[in-house]
Amino acid sequence: MSCVTEAPLLQPGQALKVMTWNLQYLAGKRYVFYYDLPDREGPDERPTAADVAYSLDEVVRVLRDEQPDLVFLQELDEGARATDYQDQLALLRERLADVYPCSTQAFYRKAAFVPQPHILGSVGMKLATLSRLRMDSAERLQLPLAEGDLLQRPFERKPALLVSYLPVREGGRLAAINTHLDPWVPGQDTAQRQLAMTRSLLDELERDRTPWVLGGDFNQLPPGQYLRLDAVQRSRFAPDSELDALKAYPRVPAAEETDGAERQRWFTQFPNDPRVTGPDRTVDYVFHSPRLTRIDARVRQLDTLRISDHLPLIARFLLPPVH
């Protein structure tokens, strides 16, 4: 956790603007990476330095324009060979220090050398949360790991919950939770176990009467969207959404939005598959405590299609007043 200056305190009854965005390590949209196709035979292995610089400029532009109070970012590289060993969070903070004095970060993939033909070098990937408001503590909670070879596990992703706590004037605090869950794998229950642990944390916060907001890339379609997806694209998802594990809590976008007549407005991913010509699915969400009241929400689609294979989801909430 880092706060470079004294940031303002969160106020009871304040409107809170939240964004979640998977930045795809600033690679941009001019590639089909080896893992982007169902057969894992995409031709590209890394972005150019010029494309990474372009994406950095574009992310800064969008964040300055929107100025959310909290930003949940996924897939930020640090020390990865594929992005020239950049510390991408440091690059963002340098450009946005006047807007976001506070940040927290946690690795969920880190290895000095991955002996995989498409990588053959270091990897480092983070969750990062930017805040305009004061933070006083943070923790990384390890989620259950995918099944697999114990020899391969040190090189794989280790998804986590990055939980940041914001003190509230008049007492109490808000929990801001950032995550990027594993994709669905046939025959494994990793998503179920990760969501079950997430639900346990949310239940605990509710019992403690601590308001919370959870945002990230869940790698899960909402109920009803599987059959609407092109048949080739369905292989990455379970026929029955695992999101029901969190159905006790309000979700943005809500079920009636992702399954309604205007569901395209809520698509948050534009895959790097040449067979897909535009955003076609929802996999990024913001869940929130019933103590928070949703004001409005949207996906910023039109001017963000070239920045990442995910689009920023934005929501505003009203915090509970002092009781």
Score class of each variant (00 low, 15 high):
Pro101Asp: 02
Ala97Tyr: 08
Ala106Met: 11
Asp98Ala: 11
Cys102Tyr: 03
Phe113Val: 14
Pro117Val: 08
His118Cys: 06
Ala97Pro: 01
Pro115Asn: 00
Glu94Cys: 00
Arg95His: 03
Leu96Ser: 06
Glu94Gly: 14
Leu92Phe: 00
Tyr108Asp: 04
Gln116Val: 11
Ala106Glu: 13
Thr104His: 06
Pro101Thr: 00
Ala97Ile: 09
Gln116Thr: 10
Val99Phe: 07
Lys110Gln: 15
Leu120Phe: 13
Cys102Arg: 01
Ala106Ser: 15
Thr104Phe: 01
Pro115Val: 04
Asp98Gly: 12
Ala97Trp: 12
Arg93Asp: 01
Ala111Phe: 07
Lys110Phe: 05
Gln105Thr: 15
Thr104Arg: 06
Tyr108Ile: 08
Pro115Arg: 07
Val99Lys: 03
His118Pro: 08
Pro115Tyr: 10
Phe107Val: 10
Tyr108Met: 06
Ala111Tyr: 04
Pro115Gly: 05
Leu89Ile: 08
Arg109Gln: 15
Arg95Val: 08
Asp98Asn: 13
Phe113Pro: 09
Lys110Arg: 15
Leu96Tyr: 01
Gly121Asn: 11
Arg95Thr: 01
Ala111Pro: 05
Ser122Ala: 15
Ser103Trp: 07
Ala106Cys: 02
Leu120Tyr: 14
Leu120Val: 11
Leu89Val: 09
Gln116Ala: 09
Arg109Ile: 05
Leu92Ser: 03
Pro101Arg: 00
His118Thr: 11
Leu92Gln: 08
Asp98Thr: 15
Ala112Thr: 08
Gln105Ile: 09
Arg109Cys: 09
Gln88Thr: 01
Pro115Lys: 04
Leu89Phe: 05
Ala111Arg: 08
His118Met: 13
Cys102Ile: 00
